[in-house]
Computed example of a mutant assay.
Amino acid sequence: MKATTRPSSNQLRPVEPQSKAPDRKSKTAATTPAPSETWGSGVADHPLRGHGLVRRVREQVPTAAVRPLTARLELTLKEVATLLALTERTLARRLEEAEGHLDTTESERLLLLDNLALHGLAVFEDQGKFNRWLRRPLPVLEGRSPLAYLDTATSFQVVDQLLGRLEHGVYS
């Protein structure tokens, strides 16, 4: 009988590239890729926090990043327009522009929504379950759904904290 080898736990997990700390002795700063190199077809592949979030907001998100996030969260044009504090018509016009960008306020809201989507997927481990949770009225949000609650930058933080509580098993 042939012995089978089981892969080690290191072989099962994808290896993530480690970022090298900048050399303090070097006078040359690390170059930051241009926004067109980092955006791709989505918004971000990991939650952005602190300076990374501020930098992305200031770069202004391309309007092309709106549709993939909208599709992933199964949002209507009206829902996205409300989240970005725009009218439906303004959002539709911006989405028609091939090389357009959201302004900084709209970019911030879209990036906060993307962070929330990434966190929600990590908590629920299923996009559909997270999308349904976004629409479910919750007593902790004054009977509003998380999606309906997202009308300010602070409300994004409140919903993100709620996801953190769910992640750690705290009943909310």
Rank of each mutant, 00 (worst) to 15 (best):
P33H: 04
V140A: 15
V140D: 10
H51F: 07
L95D: 06
F130L: 03
L86E: 14
H101L: 12
P47F: 01
F130Q: 04
L111W: 03
L118V: 02
P68Y: 08
A64Q: 12
L86I: 10
S26T: 08
E106S: 15
F124P: 00
A98V: 13
L141M: 08
H46S: 07
G128Q: 13
P68A: 14
K129D: 13
T104I: 12
R72T: 11
F124R: 00
E125V: 15
T32C: 04
G40I: 09
R55M: 02
P22R: 07
T38R: 06
Y149M: 07
L73Q: 06
S172A: 15
T31V: 15
E142H: 13
L138F: 06
G42A: 08
E99V: 09
Q11F: 10
A30F: 09
G169V: 08
E167H: 11
V54Q: 08
L86T: 11
T5R: 12
P33V: 04
L141T: 10
H119A: 06
R135M: 04
K20E: 03
G143Q: 07
V140W: 06
A92P: 00
D160P: 00
P137W: 10
L83G: 04
A3F: 10
T87Q: 12
R144F: 08
D45T: 01
E125H: 13
R89F: 11
S9N: 10
R13M: 05
E37S: 09
A122Q: 02
A29R: 14
L113P: 02
V170A: 10
E97R: 13
S145F: 09
L141F: 08
A44H: 01
M1A: 13
P35N: 06
L116E: 03
E88I: 07
Y171S: 14
V158L: 11
W133T: 06
E74D: 15
V80P: 02
H168M: 08
T90M: 13
K20T: 05
D126T: 09
H119M: 03
Q60R: 14
W133L: 04
P33C: 05
E106K: 01
S19A: 03
V80H: 05
L118Y: 01
R13F: 06
V159R: 00
Y149S: 12
H51C: 02
T5P: 00
T63E: 12
S9A: 13
R93L: 12
S19I: 00
A30Q: 10
S26Q: 09
P68N: 09
P33L: 07
E167K: 04
G143W: 05
R6G: 03
R13G: 02
P33M: 05
G100I: 08
Q60D: 07
V158R: 09
Q60H: 11
V159A: 05
S8P: 03
V159F: 04
Q127W: 03
L110T: 09
A98P: 07
V159Q: 01
D103N: 15
D151S: 13
E106H: 08
E59D: 15
E97Q: 14
R49Q: 07
E125Q: 15
H168R: 12
E88T: 14
R144I: 04
Q11D: 14
A122K: 00
T4H: 11
T82D: 15
T70C: 05
Q11V: 11
T28P: 02
E74V: 13
K2A: 12
V43Q: 03
L162P: 03
R109I: 09
R136C: 11
D114G: 02
E79F: 02
